[in-house]
C-alpha cells in the first residue's frame, strides 16, 4: 500500500517528508510499547502509535520504518519532526483512535507483519 493511500484512508495530515508519499509500505504495527515494535523486523513498515516522544522516531529509525502515524490527534514536536526528516520518515497525524486506524488499514489490504 502506498503511503499516500494510508494518508487518504486515515484522513491524515502529513507533517514531514511529503516527497516520500509514493513509497510502498508492506506491513504495519500498532503499538505504544517500543520494545514490542523492536521485537520483529517488518519490511518497509508503518508504525501507528499514540505515544509521543523522541524515542518513537528513534525506534522507527532503528527498524528502517518508512512512516509514522500518530493517532488520536497527538502532535509530534519540532525536534521529533527534524529527526524524522533527517531519516526520510514520513510523519502524519490523524484523529482516529488506534483500533479504528489499524482496522481501516488492515481491511484495505495492509496486513500486519510477518514474523521472521
Amino acid at each position: 500500500m502506498k503511503i499516500r493511500e494510508i494518508r487518504d484512508l486515515l484522513d491524515a495530515e502529513v507533517l514531514c517528508c511529503e516527497q516520500n508519499l509514493d513509497s510502498t509500505a508492506y506491513s504495519a504495527c500498532g503499538c505504544d510499547l517500543m520494545s514490542d515494535v523492536l521485537a520483529y523486523v517488518k519490511d518497509q513498515a508503518v508504525l501507528l502509535t499514540g505515544l509521543v516522544n523522541p524515542q518513537v522516531v528513534r525506534t522507527a529509525e532503528m527498524m528502517d520504518m518508512i512512516c509514522i502515524v500518530f493517532v488520536r490527534s497527538k502532535a509530534p514536536t519540532k525536534e521529533m519532526l527534524d529527526l524524522a526528516e533527517d531519516n526520510g520518515i514520513v510523519v502524519m497525524k490523524c484523529n482516529k483512535r488506534m483500533y479504528e486506524a489499524c482496522g481501516l488499514l488492515y481491511s484495505n489490504g495492509l496486513v500486519g507483519n510477518k514474523v521472521k
Partner: peptide
C-alpha cells in the same frame, strides 16, 4: 508511560 517496560529489551538484544 514513556513506551518502555514491556520486558522485551534483553530478549531482543539476544535475538
Amino acid at each position: 508511560s514513556l513506551g518502555f517496560g514491556a520486558g522485551m529489551g534483553l530478549p531482543n538484544m539476544k535475538r
